[in-house]
Computed example of a mutant assay.
Amino acid sequence: MPHHCCAFGCTNRQNKDNRLRGITFHRFPTNQTARKQWEVALRRKAFIATVYSRLCSEHFRQVDFDRTGQTVRIRDGVVPSVFNFPARLKKPVATRTGWTSKQADTAASPNQSVYCSPPVTAGEPQPDPSLDHSYALPTCPDALKARLSEAMAEVESLRREKRNAKDRERRAKSTVCGLLEELRAKNLINQELKENMSYNME
């Protein structure tokens, strides 16, 4: 299953075409503080990265990459900073001001504060937000119907594959049972062995 970039408005997928374009995809840091910095930099409300979350290389500067090995890596301490945010997301990220909220932040990271580098606008036309991610619901009813039709078609395709797999399994069992009967008839195997083999196939 190809990964999608989880940055706002980014439609890049981890596929052959993007690989040929030199676009790489990167996991979120395992370090909690660094991961939080990446999450805040995305400016997506209530976004929490999972093990499947990826950011593509278009959201980092060239100096952010370590290309010394066979695999392109993000240097330690780097925070994604190249985004094409709409005007409403270009405002400074709100910080916690209440005593309870500050205590929660301190408990999560007592010695470090979350840093979000300023976004770098790419100057390109803003993509349709409905195309943001494969799991985001489109805002347009027609697009929503199209997405539902695609999902239903995929479900039906999976059902057909399941039926075909069951049919293949049934044919294989039938073939093996026929072979066992033939071997038994020729006295090449005894009844006990035949029954044991038949039992193991159930």
Rank of each mutant, 00 (worst) to 15 (best):
R88V: 14
A94S: 04
S109C: 09
A87H: 05
D128P: 01
D132R: 00
P127I: 08
G98S: 07
D105I: 00
L131E: 03
P119C: 13
T106M: 02
Q112D: 14
D132K: 00
A143G: 07
D142G: 14
D105Q: 02
C116S: 15
W99L: 07
P129M: 05
A108N: 11
V120Y: 05
P92D: 08
L137C: 11
P92Q: 11
P110H: 06
V120S: 05
W99G: 02
S113L: 10
Y135V: 15
L131K: 04
D142T: 12
K90L: 15
V93K: 14
T97K: 07
H133L: 08
A87K: 02
P125N: 12
S117N: 15
R147S: 09
A104P: 00
W99F: 11
P110V: 11
T139E: 08
V114L: 09
K91I: 07
A122W: 08
T106F: 08
P118G: 10
T95V: 09
D142I: 04
P141V: 00
D128T: 04
A146R: 02
P92Y: 08
T95H: 08
D105C: 04
Q126D: 09
V120A: 06
P141I: 03
S109K: 01
K91F: 07
P129W: 06
A107G: 03
V120R: 05
A87Q: 10
A94Q: 12
G98P: 00
R96F: 09
P127Y: 03
Q103T: 14
S101P: 00
L144F: 12
T95Q: 14
S101N: 04
D142Y: 15
A136S: 14
A94I: 04
A87E: 06
A108L: 03
A87C: 07
A122H: 10
D128L: 07
S130N: 03
Q103M: 06
C116Q: 10
L89G: 04
N111E: 10
D105T: 01
S130F: 01
S113M: 03
H133G: 07
R96P: 00
Q126W: 06
T139Y: 09
D132Q: 01
T121I: 12
L137T: 15
Q103H: 09
G123H: 06
K145E: 13
L89Y: 04
K90P: 00
V120L: 12
P118D: 15
Y115S: 12
D132A: 02
W99M: 03
D142R: 05
T121F: 14
L131Y: 04
R147H: 08
T97D: 01
Y115T: 13
A104I: 08
T95P: 01
C116M: 06
A146P: 01
T121E: 15
P138Q: 05
L137V: 11
Y135S: 15
P119E: 08
P92R: 07
T139R: 10
T139G: 13
K91N: 11
L131C: 08
S130C: 06
A104C: 13
A108P: 00
L89H: 04
T100P: 00
Q103I: 10
S134Y: 13
T121R: 08
